[in-house]
C-alpha cells in the first residue's frame, strides 16, 4: 500500500514536472504582447454577451445521479468477479492440486505457500460457492436493474425531453402515412423558402 501511494505521489510530481519544464522554457522565448482583444473571450468575433457562469439544464443532473448509482455498484463487481472467477476455476475438475492450492490461498487471502495441495477446496464445494456467488450478484444486480428500468420507463434517459416534441412524436407515430398534397399557395411558399 505505501508502495502504491508513494508511486502515485511521485508519478504526480513527475507528470507535473513534464508540464512545468516546457512552460518555463517557453516563458524565456515566447512573446507576451497583451491587448484587450486577446484578453476577450472568443465568441466567433462578436463582442461577448453576458457571463458564461449560467444556469444549466437539469438533465445533466439525472445523468450524474445515474452514474453514481451505477458506478458504486460496479465498483463492488470487481472484488466479486475476482472471487467468483477463482471459484469457477476451482470447480473445474481438471485443475491440478498445486494450482488448486494456490487458488484457495488467493480465495482465503492466505500468504503464498501456506497450503498443501490436499488442503485445497474440492470442486463440489467450489461449485456450491459458485452458486452462492451467482445468487448474491443476481440480488445485488437485480435491484440495480429494477431501478434502471424505472428510470428508463420514466423517460429520464431521453436526452431530448421537450413536451411539445414528445406529443408531436407520438402523433407522428399514431398517424397513418397518407400523402396529402399541400395547397397551391403553400407549395409555392415552401419552394421559395
Amino acid at each position: 500500500m505505501p508502495d502504491v501511494v508513494g508511486h502515485l505521489l511521485l508519478f504526480a510530481l513527475t507528470g507535473s514536472l513534464m508540464l512545468l519544464i516546457p512552460l518555463l522554457i517557453g516563458k524565456l522565448i515566447r512573446p507576451s504582447v497583451r491587448s484587450p482583444e486577446k484578453d476577450a473571450i472568443y465568441e466567433c468575433g462578436e463582442p461577448t454577451i453576458g457571463s458564461s457562469f449560467i444556469q444549466f439544464d437539469l438533465r445533466f443532473y439525472t445523468v450524474a445521479l445515474l452514474f453514481i448509482v451505477f458506478d458504486v455498484e460496479v465498483a463492488f463487481f470487481f472484488p466479486w468477479a475476482a472471487v467468483y472467477g477463482t471459484a469457477g476455476q476451482l470447480a473445474d475438475q481438471r485443475v491440478p492440486p498445486a494450482v488448486a492450492a494456490q487458488l484457495t490461498e488467493q480465495l482465503a487471502s492466505l500468504p503464498a505457500g501456506t497450503l498443501k495441495p490436499d488442503q485445497a477446496i474440492d470442486p463440489q464445494t467450489a461449485l456450491a460457492l459458485l452458486k452462492t456467488g451467482l445468487v448474491d450478484i443476481l440480488v445485488f444486480f437485480g435491484v440495480l436493474l429494477v431501478g434502471f428500468a424505472y428510470v428508463w420507463k420514466r423517460g429520464d434517459l431521453d436526452w431530448v425531453r421537450s413536451l411539445a416534441r414528445q406529443t408531436e412524436h407520438r402523433q407522428h407515430l399514431a398517424r397513418t402515412p397518407t400523402v396529402v398534397p399541400p395547397p397551391e399557395a403553400t407549395r409555392q411558399e415552401s419552394t421559395v423558402a
Binding site: 516546457p22 512552460l23 522554457i25 517557453g26 516563458k27 522565448i29 515566447r30 512573446p31 507576451s32 504582447v33 486577446k38 484578453d39 476577450a40 473571450i41 472568443y42 461577448t48 457571463s51 458564461s52
Partner: peptide, 12 residues
C-alpha cells in the same frame, strides 16, 4: 508551440 504566446482570457 513552445514559442506561442501563453494567453489566459481576462474573464477566466
Amino acid at each position: 508551440l513552445l514559442q506561442k504566446e501563453d494567453l489566459i482570457p481576462g474573464d477566466a
